[in-house]
Nucleic acid binder design. Structure first.
Lengths: 172, 172
DNA sequence: TGAATATCTTAAACTACCTTAAGTTTTTAT
DNA sequence: ATAAAAACTTAAGGTAGTTTAAGATATTCA
């Protein structure tokens, strides 16, 4: 059994916006094939990527889903993407879920926390180049599949500077 | 029922090291009175604060506890601190916990993820001054209780620069 | 296929934040 | 009460990463 209980398979064309700022998020979904991204737009209009969800990853707006508040993020499809989709609010989920489901949820959530902790750590202590090298190791397939611009946003720098880093790394 | 199942109350004097780098973490604890911090030390020997745990907060090394690997962080007491302490590994916990315990765990974990997401967001898009202002609003009591040095570490800047920010903010 | 649009690169000028270092104030411990 | 240690401030000089802008290369789609 998996993170969410009631499921159906859905398909999104590349570029489809799945969740918008202002909407209350009422789903979680797990990517079967393709890739989604979640991101927010800051006061200066700049996009910052929160998470990529390639095959096997879960994506949602936990804050909106859990607290039933309007979302402050966007989720959309970077590639044509097939997902396991669950329309739910957390209450439904808890009422319906068996003990085993809950155990799986805990495992999924714990993994999510661990990944988040690692990212915080990188942002606090590593240089842009170190973060880029780490990205390559952590997501070798994504490095090929994603435009540089999105990777730059994820590691927290400008595309121009990532371009410079690539040149430097290549020259080694 | 609360996050962990088997509990006892423990007391730590200010300065006590509760978890060290290299040890496998086998506990979680919730602060009743006082304050703990978790942090890591980077290659340059610099300390970076991951989390403060004042009254009501949970602290642990999820990665070490969940994956049974040596910890890469430290946890210690910033003030004299009283905690609800649980010595466990995750397996025990899951075997022992009732359905209601699991629900509470999920809620605790979800809150943790949400807090982590917010922090990532701040690190990606806000200036040091904005992060400081946010810290004051989010943890008004801590702003008084903690040395500047620790707050600087948490928001990801040097104490010298935070000192400069304070002067600038005060002058407004 | 070709025009339009998005992506990537390069470089110069700029800024947020760091490093170093020295002086001041506060806290701790005897 | 006093010395020692820790915390805080200030300032000058340095650097990682940004901004702006323009040209080069891909990709999309009619």
């Amino acid at each position: 059994m998996d993170f969410f209980d009631i499921k159906k398979v859905k398909f999104f064309k590349k570029g489809t916006v799945i969740l918008q700022e202002g909407e209350v998020c009422k789903f979680g979904c797990k990517v079967i094939k393709g890739c989604l991204k979640s991101y927010f737009i800051d006061d200066a209009g700049k996009e910052h990527i929160i998470q990529f969800a390639p095959e096997g990853w879960l994506i949602s707006d936990m804050n909106s889903l859990f607290n039933k508040v309007p979302s402050t993020i966007y989720i959309d499809a970077i590639e044509d993407t097939e997902v396991l989709w669950v329309r739910t609010d957390m209450n439904d989920l808890w009422e319906l879920a068996s003990r085993e489901d809950l155990l799986d949820q805990i495992k999924t959530l714990t993994r999510n926390i661990i990944a988040g902790n690692k990212r915080t750590r990188m942002l606090l202590s590593s240089t842009a180049e170190e973060r880029y090298q780490d990205f390559i190791q952590t997501y070798p397939t994504l490095t090929q599949r994603l435009p540089l611009k999105l990777i730059a946003s994820y590691i927290g720098i400008t595309p121009e500077y990532l371009s410079e880093i690539r040149r430097k790394v290549a020259g080694k």
